[in-house]
């Protein structure tokens, strides 16, 4: 795609000009995107490449629990697992972050301490995003104040689907501001699109550009609460967007597929796609993450299989 560097101030000066820009983005070839994703899923990754991919995937996991029934005990257990995913093997790397509801940030922060595992908190009336702007901002400030390193916000899909793009843009800007800490640093902002509700790949491309122009550090597919969650072709469109965005602005934005990725095999397919579409620069937990819970155990089982030479089972890993 050869979009020229947009003058962000001008593009976002009115709803109409923002719409003109977003609808001026080239359309996504749906059949092509699906075929490309399917083709990339057929690559054979074996032996040392597989070992590398599994360890990399572990370091990219945002270990997630977003349930109404979450308790401090569960968050502590999950945090312990995030630091030492395989207690039997000290060479196993830690995951990137734990992803939790805002009221659990303090508990997670206390357990994780200075381990380097980050605390990501969902915010802005997750998962529906149906609340007043002030409430969403208060939700975000609250999570940041509690010590969250990363904020996973949801966009207002209702506003986006009814064409009120500027509203969505301004909301992301406002949340980004709310991510600021008193010391001048800021929590990283991930913007969740909920691609399962956006209907078309064109919409995914538009919201990707909109979120990146608004200053998202990461763009994320889904909340995990809506089916379908992350899909290969949907993520492919987002990877193209971050690649093109860097080409024209020089700013690098991360991508996080979340929900529905349960098997190591799928995770490895995503890594292949990241490498082929966005480039090797994105093969880093700073720029690509998996939002997942059950995926980690499967990665650990595969890792153990490769190290020991025999198949292992779920009995030997924690339930979470």
């Amino acid at each position: 795609m050869t979009a020229l560097l947009p003058d962000v101030a001008e593009v976002t000066s009115s709803d109409a000009s923002l719409r003109r820009f977003l609808h001026g983005l080239p359309g996504v070839d749906q059949v092509g995107a699906e075929a490309r994703a399917a083709e990339l899923a057929t690559r054979s990754i074996k032996t040392t490449a597989k070992e590398f991919a599994i360890d990399l995937a572990i370091t990219m996991v945002d270990l997630t629990t977003l349930e109404g029934q979450d308790t401090p005990g569960k968050v502590r257990a999950l945090s312990a697992k995030a630091m030492r995913p395989d207690p039997a093997d000290p060479t196993c790397p830690a995951v990137a972050a734990v992803c939790i509801y805002p009221d659990m940030v303090g508990v997670a922060k206390q357990t994780l301490g200075e381990s380097g595992v980050r605390v990501a908190s969902v915010a802005t009336a997750f998962p529906s995003g149906r609340a007043a702007r002030e409430i969403k901002l208060a939700d975000t400030r609250n999570a940041v104040a509690a010590g969250a390193d990363e904020i996973d916000m949801v966009i207002d899909r209702g506003a986006f689907l009814s064409g009120r793009y500027l509203e969505v843009y301004e909301e992301i800007l406002a949340v980004r501001e709310a991510c600021a800490r008193p010391d001048g640093s800021e929590a990283h902002l991930k913007v969740i699109f909920e691609t399962g509700e956006l209907q078309t790949f064109d919409n995914i491309r538009r919201i990707s550009w909109l979120a990146m122009m608004a200053g998202a550090h990461f763009i994320k597919t889904s909340t995990g609460k809506v089916q379908p969650a992350a899909t290969m072709p949907g993520t492919l469109v987002m990877l193209e967007a971050v690649r093109d965005f860097r080409d024209v602005t020089g700013t690098m934005v991360g991508v996080k597929p979340a929900g529905g990725i349960r098997a190591s095999k799928e995770a490895i397919r995503y890594l292949v796609m990241v490498n082929e579409i966005a480039g090797a620069d994105w093969l880093d937990p700073a720029w690509f993450r998996f939002g997942a819970s059950t995926l980690l155990n499967d990665l650990l089982m595969q890792r153990t299989k490769m190290k020991t030479g025999h198949y292992t089972g779920p009995d030997y890993f924690t339930l979470d």
Binding site: G309, H310, Y311, T312, G313, P314, D315, Y316
Partner: peptide, 9 residues
């Protein structure tokens, strides 16, 4: 041999 060494059998 794979079944015999399989930890989940």
């Amino acid at each position: 041999p794979w079944l015999a060494s399989h930890m989940d059998v």
